[in-house]
Design a protein around this nucleic acid. Structure first.
Lengths: 190, 190
DNA sequence: CTGATTTGTTAACAAATGTTATCGCGGGAG
DNA sequence: CTCCCGCGATAACATTTGTTAACAAATCAG
């Protein structure tokens, strides 16, 4: 799991081992809530195996905003960064193996990283990439039909299609599960 | 225009004057294209007066993705940062007074800023805020109806309602101008 | 001022999407 | 094994949204 760290982060072994030691292993069943809407986030999670969805309650209906898989880092960044109640619930879909790190430890790592120019730039790039992702998703939502967005998902994120229950995907696309089912059957015929 | 700089940026007068000297004034009429889709962005713009929209061509139809007003910094960040062709056109809506800065000068400023912890953190915060904005917009697009999104706009960005032609707003909301007109008349009656 | 262009409204109809309900399949709990 | 229950498909009907077209109002160039 941490081998990618070794390749990409130019820090000495001692430091790296210290950083790695902050992460703790946990195994959880499906549908485990790692963070509840309204609570303040104190942990970030790194997925070794399994998958996770991020969602919130909108007038009694689930709205799914993100999916995460192996090697992704998951957390309510907004809650984490600003110490405000999380707008979302974070929940496993499959039984999962996770590494988690406490906020105070991650903050410490971040402070140190920001003094190393190459790492700092990687960090900034990562944030920018995140911004571009959301930008693309927003643009797609006003430019593409639900059918087109489903096709995009097949192309760009086949894992979602393969591993995620369909009603979560529908919620993620902003449509009902009935409508998604119709889109699928239409595509199967056409 | 640059008075906010003085208050918020803890750098000495000499440096600040150097930075300010990089910005050049320009006055342009409405519908001036500051950056064309497909070109590589070499400039960022700071709006003194006027407003700007960002849009791209989607199978012959305008899709508007952003609006900017006074004191906003505008540019195709993606093109600017990665030196790739801009996915969008940037165009004034009203006659505008702008300050522009060349990429190489802004890069220089950025490199220096990143060595000053408080400024660096401000910069990182700014990127995060941008990410949250897009995140919110994306979430609103899957959670809210067009009517609700229009109401949100009235609440949160009244400038858009007041100053932007309605068909651009419709395009920004991902609906047709006819539909937006219907929403307005429905709200006027209800 | 005047004609042309841009912007906004409305109506009639078509297509997309939501709602509700029903059915069936398959896996997990007991 | 059996019985739920989560998940997905489909149908019938309701509502929302798009399309096209015609017209009205506002704005702009000459």
């Amino acid at each position: 799991m941490f081998s990618t760290f070794r390749d990409r982060f130019p820090i000495d072994d001692k430091k790296r081992n210290e950083y790695v030691s902050y992460f703790k292993l946990m195994k959880v069943p499906a549908k485990t809530r790692l963070l509840e809407e309204g609570k303040i986030s104190k942990k970030m999670f790194l997925i070794e195996t399994g998958c996770i969805r991020v969602w919130f309650n909108n007038n009694g209906k689930d709205v799914t905003t993100q999916f995460f898989f192996e090697n992704n880092m998951v957390g309510s960044i907004e809650s984490f960064r600003k110490n405000i109640p999380s707008p979302v619930t974070i929940e496993t879909i499959e039984p999962s193996v996770l590494w988690w790190i406490h906020k105070k430890d991650l903050d410490k790592i971040m402070e140190e990283i920001k003094e190393i120019p190459s790492l700092r730039d990687m960090f900034i790039d990562a944030i920018f990439d995140r911004t571009y992702d959301y930008m693309k998703q927003f643009i797609s939502s006003i430019k593409d039909s639900p059918e087109q967005r489903y096709l995009n998902l097949i192309q760009e994120r086949p894992q979602i299609i393969r591993r995620i229950p369909q009603h979560y995907i529908a919620s993620y696309l902003g449509i009902t599960k009935v409508h998604l089912s119709r889109i699928k059957s239409k595509l199967a015929k056409g």
